[in-house]
Design a protein around this nucleic acid. Structure first.
Lengths: 144, 144
DNA sequence: AGTCATTTCCTACTTTCGTATGAGCACGTG
DNA sequence: CACGTGCTCATACGAAAGTAGGAAATGACT
């Protein structure tokens, strides 16, 4: 975020400098106008590339995805997240890719209950979707 | 390939036009120099974004192995599953827990296209839901 | 020049997911 | 016993996700 602000600051600075050079040139006629325009073109062309790259990297760098040969569940993390036993049961089934209905069948309870649990899980893991919840849970080793 | 040539042609044309305007302005003094410089800046900023986007789409389809500091992904498994490069892109974002709309924004394409890709991914990975697809993909090391 | 694969986008429809809200039951603790 | 916690279930609604089927542009390969 800071990099973007600094970057835009530098760009605006560049523009102002170019303006200034253009003005001086307009009076003295020392520098060719084409040079100024070309400079603006080059600078902002690469600026465009840079910012585009930045914005694309955002989504991937935000979630570093700890690449560790993990297979163990950290039971402390479950408590830390405030998940109950039943919620954890549901979360595990969720991570296996089951639908609410399938989880309900597997745990011998109704789909309504699963929905309640899922809602609570999403809230406790600060996730907006079940896929995100699974991702968070794996990172925190709440599920394998 | 043709699009890039045409694009560069247009860009050079823009530059020449700007040069011409600058020259005329230099004599008559009708147009503010700042306007010309700013135009060059804006045009080439977005040109940079556009070309970067293009080249990234190219790179991902041409050389999938080039940008891969990730040791956990088995690129053979991707081919074995019959996934295209773009489908893999979507799958990765999916595994990060993004919604269709968020993936669309991240990849600069529409949500409709994401839905098409997701449908194809589900079919190719023999999954019924995205959560299941993610699970399968992780097992086969298609995603980290 | 024609064919195929890929990527993109769309409409329209169905299904699943998630939220909000309320409620009943069991269990243990202060 | 009252109270909180956890588990269960329900309805109703809105938001995503997924399906089906079509279409068009591009690039590679022949």
């Amino acid at each position: 975020m800071r990099a973007i602000i600094i970057g835009f600051g530098l760009l605006i600075l560049c523009l102002l400098i170019l303006f200034r050079i253009a003005e001086v040139n307009f009076i003295s006629g020392n520098v060719r106008l084409e040079v100024i325009v070309a400079m603006a073109a080059i600078i902002f062309f690469f600026a465009g590339i840079y910012f585009n790259k930045r914005s694309q990297q955002k989504n991937t760098t935000d979630t570093p995805v700890a690449i560790s040969p993990n297979s163990a569940i950290d039971y402390n993390a479950i408590k830390k997240a405030g998940l109950t036993q039943r919620e954890h049961d549901v979360l595990v089934k969720m991570a296996e890719g089951l639908s609410n209905q399938e989880i309900a069948t597997a745990l011998f309870i109704s789909e309504s209950t699963i929905k309640t649990h899922v809602s609570n899980i999403l809230f406790k893991l600060d996730a907006k979707r079940r896929t995100q919840a699974i991702q968070v849970a794996k990172e925190r080793k709440i599920v394998a």
